[in-house]
Each structure stands twice: as C-alpha cells, then as structure tokens.
Design a protein around this nucleic acid. Structure first.
Length: 639
RNA sequence: GCCCCCGUAGCUCAGUGGAUAGAGCGGCCGCCUUCUAAGCGGUUGGUCGUGGGUUCGAUUCCUACCGGGGGCGCCA
C-alpha cells in the first residue's frame, strides 16, 4: 500500500504555488533567463514572500528595477493564486507576496497536524536517493571509554541516519570496530604484561582507558615494551591462538560498554562490523587482488617505496616516489589501515563478491545490533547488509586524505558511480577550552585557546561522565529521575549537534551543561509548554475558522511551522545536523514569543480565537516533536 | 613547501549573492494574582581578519596577503 506523503518544501507548499506564476511573468516581460527565485521576506513588514528578480532583470531589460517590479506585480496580480492576497513593490525593486491568512494558515495547520512518524515527510525531487544509504559512524577503537569527541561523531551519524529515514530513505547504520589495531594491543600489553589491575567497581572500558594511558607513558620510559606489543600484534595476525582470543574478548567487553554509553543518548546500530572478520574472511586479500589485477595498485621495485604495493595519485599510473603515492601494502607484506578500509568500502557497495556471516550481538537482545562473524553461528542471521547505493562515512576531518584514497581506489577499479557515491562526512574535532582544560587539571599555557583531546594522554571528557554531570545539573528542577536523564541527554546531544561540521567545538562545561537559551532543554521545555496548553484546553470538533486579524506573533509562528519540510529537506541534502538544530531553536523561540505575547488560551472567551490558537499550538507541538525526534532528542510532555 | 578548515558583538557561534548582519551567553534595567520564569522584554555591544577584483548589489564568489588549527607515515 502506498502511503500519502506530506507535501513538499514548505508545509503549505507556498513556494511551488507561487513560482510558476513568477516564471510566467518573467517570461512575459522578456526575462526568460532570470531564475524565478522567491524567498521568505526578510522582515514581516515587507510581506510574506519576496523576490529580487527585478534587480536582475534591470540589466537585460535596460529599465529601472522599480519599474520592472511594478510590471511584474501587475502581471502577478492578474494571476489567481488562492494563497496570495496581494502583491506589492518595495525599493530597490522587490516584489512581495502577502498571503491570504485564511487559506494559508488553514493549510499549514492541516499539514502540520497530519505529520505522522509512520509516514515519511515528502521532500523535493533530488533530495532523497533511491536505494539504501549505508551510514558508518562511531567506530571508536575498542580499547578505551568513549569521550565527547567519539560522542560528537555518533550524534552526527545517528542524526544523519534519522534525517534520511525521516525523508523516506532506506538506511543501514554500521559501527566499525578495529579490533586488530595497535590500540587494543596496547591495552592487552598493559593488562597481561604489566599486570595493571582494575580498581574495585571500575567499569571495564574506564579501566582500559587507564591502562592505555599508563602503557603509552611507559613506552617512552621502556622502549623494549614495544616488542611486547609487536608480539601481540603478530598473534592477532596469526589468529587461532590464546592471545588473539583474549584480544577479541577485551574488544568485545569494551564494545559492550560503548553500546551502553551510546544507548544512553538514544544511539543504536544495525550492524557491528569487525575488522578481524574483514581479514579473517579474506576481504582484504580479495580487495588487494582486485586492485592488483586492475592495475589500480602497483609494485614499487625501487625508490622510497621499494617492496611496497602502492596507489599512485589521481591520473598517474606509476609510483611518484613521494607522499602523493599511497602505500597500501608495506614491504613486510602487511596491509595498511587504508587497504582494509578499501576492502570494507567495496563490501559496503556489494562490489567484493564476498559476504560476512551474521548473528545477533546478544542472543537475548533481539532489538540490538547484529554482528558480523567469520564463521557460521547457530543463530545465524540472514544476509541483508551492505550492497548500498550510497555510503556515508562519518569520520573526522583529519582523515580526509585516506578517505580520498578509498574513493580513488573505487574509481581506479572502474566503479565510478560508487566512487561518486562515497561520501566522507567530515567533521571537525572536539577540543577543550582553557577553562575546561584547567577543570581537568591540565596546565594551561598563556596564548593557547584550544587543547586537543587525547585518549592516549588521558586528556578527555568521558561521554558518561558528562552525562552524569548533566543529570546533576537538571535533577533539581526535573519532575523525576527519568525526565532528568532525558533532559540531560538532550542537552548534550543538542550541544554536540548545533555547531557546523566545519567548526571545531571548543568544549566548555558551562556551555555543554547549560539549560537556558539556545540549548536542548529550551527546546524540550517549549515542547512541554505546548503539551501543557493542550492538556488544559480541550479541543472540539468544530471546523477551523481563521480569525480575521492574526497577531504578528501568530503569523511568525505559522511561518516557522511552514518551514519545517524545507528545513528537513535542506538537512537531508547537506547532511549537516546543525541546519536542523537551528531550525528547531527558531521554532521553539517563536513558540515562546507567542506564549508570552498572547493571553492564556485557557481564558480566551472568543471561541474562534480560542480554537485557532489551540490548534496552532497543537501543530507546533507536532512539528517540534518531529524535529526533536529526528535530532534524537526526547520530546517530553512534562518536564 | 603543498593541500584543507577556521577568522562575524567581550565570549561561544548562526547566517549567506540581495532590503537596517542575527542568536545564545556575559553586563545593566525590568516582568511571576496570567496555559510551567528551564520563560519574556528592554539595553549594552560589530571597519563580518586585511587589500584588491567580479557584480545593479559581496560578510557571502574570485584573488593576494595576515592570524589560528589540521593534514601531507612502509601509523591507525
């Protein structure tokens, strides 16, 4: 059965109702080359929607913009558009549409109220792709507790997945686990060789963090310790031995803690992909074969890469003998991390001709993630993963170069479309402000404004520690512990999402934990306020009548509601969650403004006004809840 | 050296080829007999890093600089 979708762009679809008329008017005055763009007016007293096209026409038509605007207005006045009441002109040459509130407000409220989580929000053509998008995120090394940097990654990835699903797209979320790298090996060295033991009651991932810091420090003092790590790595490489099993067990236990941490922020996964399986099942070998056969990589006979398999830069088919050429297999025969990433990427698109075995990560948690496996399990899950049409890798901006190499590998293998559909969703890191650094007891130098996080050095804010602090902050005013938790998690998620991806987050405790102003809690509070009004004011069955003169705060609020579908489509296109946080804040803010500047609806005696405002609040609540849910933030009815 | 990102109010950040550049925080002054004051209003505060260029119009695009961060490994 095909479900009905909510109309696109604005909830009321104002823009696409106006654009054809504007297009026709432009054609009629001989300005066919000018784009028929129309945008929300910059200020309410200009109108509702405005177009600057007359300014562009002035050059080609060699007439003053105001005169052209006047002509356009006359033509538009002659076109009946039910949602537009009148057209005006304002200097230096804008043409403004004034909406008919009766038609517009009714449409906006109808469409907003019809929003339903079980039905996707329709978006303009080109926003949603056909087929599945595979989103890889989190991918925290399984040797330490997750810190806010890992949490930023997870929040971005999770939100992008939610936005794509909300716009009707199929999504698979993978969490890649590097259980064969040096980082896990370091921890195993610390536990087994140095005998570092857990503290009473210490969580396993936190214990591993401590071991990791300790071992890293001791490598400097005792260089021979590095040999121990090599032994562990060789054991992992060989597989099927006691050490390899032990390493895998450490990784599993840490991953369980990571999943629990992320769960507290409402972040989940479809599939856990293990690097050991990628190697164990021969994905890497197969990928290297393909790369060799196709000539995508070549063997360097001499020069600085002698004995290595390398991938030359774009458009070159020989070793350039410099850093432009990427080594994929070292001269000792060991593949680099990027080579494994290429194998994984090929699998994601179904280009490898190999697949994993699958089984539930926890037999007793059917809703939990599925895990890859190298061998058949009794509770084998059928293969339904990978084979995506688009791959979004949420990885910090420092890895732009290796990600570029992965993309280039696909391209050199002749998979142009897949290379094109390989998206490195790069985001900047989380760093500490001097204030946050000094809270953590780090020596703050004069003139430095950010301090990089480092799990290795123990310079970090653990995700769970931050959550505990946040719960402490909101507990006093929250109605109960469960509410305190969802407000606390909302505060942190919002904080990590509200920055542009290109912006380094200068982490600050006060900012991250704040509950007033531009924060997650503000949005949740606004939602609860709306819900509170709806509880107190019963609705009736009477048909909606839009009052003759809407209050400016009502119109402003309607505009924000109207803009939801547009904001969602924009976010789905840009894959940038901050677009949606900015929108959600503007909506909550408009609701607060309305709340403060209109009398209580409960006491409203005019039935028309009372019903209209009640339904306006109902629409806002639905849209705010939808936006919050898409951001992965709970929308409580009471706080 | 080459490449990428950032530079907008005291601080943290939005914005983006169009009309007087916005928000939050901070400061100051107000608003709870009103549907939750985790709120709202007012006020303070800006040569949109600098110089050129393109354009009817540039904070936005191009270019050259300046300042800060990151990448450029037979690490992951």
């Amino acid at each position: 059965m095909r479900s009905r979708c909510v109309p696109l762009r604005e909830m009321s679809d104002v823009r696409s109702r106006i654009t054809p008329a504007l297009r026709a008017a432009l054609d009629a005055i001989g300005a066919a080359d000018v784009d028929a763009v129309i945008e929300p007016s910059a200020r309410a007293d200009f109108g509702d929607w405005s177009t600057p096209v007359a300014m562009q026409c002035a050059r080609v038509l060699r007439r003053p913009p105001l005169e052209i605007a006047g002509g356009l207005r006359d033509r538009l006045e002659g076109t009946r558009i039910d949602v537009v009441r009148q057209w005006t002109v304002s200097p230096p040459g804008y043409v403004n549409a004034w909406l008919d509130d009766g038609v517009w407000a009714r449409t906006v409220l109808d469409e907003a109220t019809r929003l339903d989580v079980s039905r996707p929000v329709d978006v303009p053509p080109g926003v949603a792709i056909d087929g599945k998008t595979l989103v890889e995120h989190t991918a925290t090394n399984p040797n330490k507790a997750a810190h806010v940097g890992h949490l930023r990654n997870a929040c971005i990835g999770d939100t992008v997945a939610r936005v794509l699903r909300r716009t009707g797209q199929r999504v698979e979320v993978d969490n890649y686990i590097d259980d064969t790298g040096v980082q896990v090996a370091d921890v195993v060295v610390g536990i087994r060789e140095l005998g570092i033991v857990p503290i009473e009651g210490e969580r396993f991932d936190v214990y591993c963090s401590r071991v990791y810091v300790d071992v890293s420090r001791r490598y400097d003092e005792e260089p021979e310790l590095v040999q121990r790590r090599q032994a562990v790595l060789h054991a992992i490489e060989a597989g099927d031995n006691e050490t390899a099993t032990y390493v895998k067990d450490v990784a599993r236990r840490v991953v369980d803690e990571h999943l629990a941490t992320m769960r507290r922020f409402d972040i989940g996964y479809d599939l856990l992909t293990w690097e050991s399986d990628i190697i164990g099942l021969g994905f890497l070998q197969k990928a290297l074969e393909l790369l060799r056969e196709s000539g995508a990589i070549l063997y360097a006979e001499h020069g600085k890469h002698a004995g290595c398999w390398v991938m030359p830069p774009e458009g070159v088919d020989r070793d350039t003998d410099d850093d432009e050429t990427k080594v994929l297999v070292k001269s000792d025969g060991i593949a680099t991390y990027t080579a494994k990433d290429i194998a994984y990427q090929l699998w994601k698109f179904g280009l490898l001709g190999l697949d994993f075995h699958y089984h539930p990560w926890h037999a007793d948690a059917p809703d939990g993630p599925v895990s890859t496996a190298a061998h058949r399990h009794d509770d084998e899950v059928p293969a339904r993963f990978g084979t995506a049409q688009r791959v979004v890798n949420v990885i910090d901006a420092r890895q732009a170069y290796p990600q570029q190499v992965v993309k280039r590998a696909l391209s050199r293998l002749g998979h142009e479309r897949e290379a094109e559909s390989s998206i490195h969703l790069a985001y900047e890191v989380v760093a500490l402000t001097p204030a946050a650094a000094s809270v953590l007891g780090i020596d703050v130098e004069v003139g430095r404004d950010v301090y990089a996080l480092s799990g290795r050095k123990g310079i970090e804010v653990l995700a769970d520690d931050l959550l505990i602090r946040s719960v402490d902050r909101v507990r006093e005013k929250a109605r109960d512990e469960a509410t305190a938790h969802l407000l606390a998690a909302g505060a942190i998620r919002y904080y990590l999402l509200k920055f542009s991806l290109t912006q380094i987050i200068a982490f600050d405790f006060d900012e991250a934990l704040r509950v007033t102003g531009d924060t997650g809690v503000y949005l949740q509070y606004a939602h609860a306020r709306a819900a509170g009004i709806l509880r107190k004011v019963p609705d009736d069955d009477a048909p909606l009548v839009v009052p003759d003169a809407l209050d400016p705060v009502e119109r402003a609020l309607l505009h924000r509601v109207d803009a939801y579908a547009h904001a969602l489509a924009e976010t789905a296109t840009s894959l940038s969650p901050s677009t949606l946080t900015t929108y959600a804040f503007s909506l909550a803010s408009a609701l607060s403004d309305f709340y403060e500047h209109t009398p209580p609806i409960v006491r409203e005696l005019d039935p028309v006004v009372r019903r209209f405002r009640r339904r306006l609040v109902a629409a806002v609540r639905v849209v705010l809840a939808d936006a919050l849910h898409t951001l992965g933030i709970a929308a409580p009815d009471r706080v």
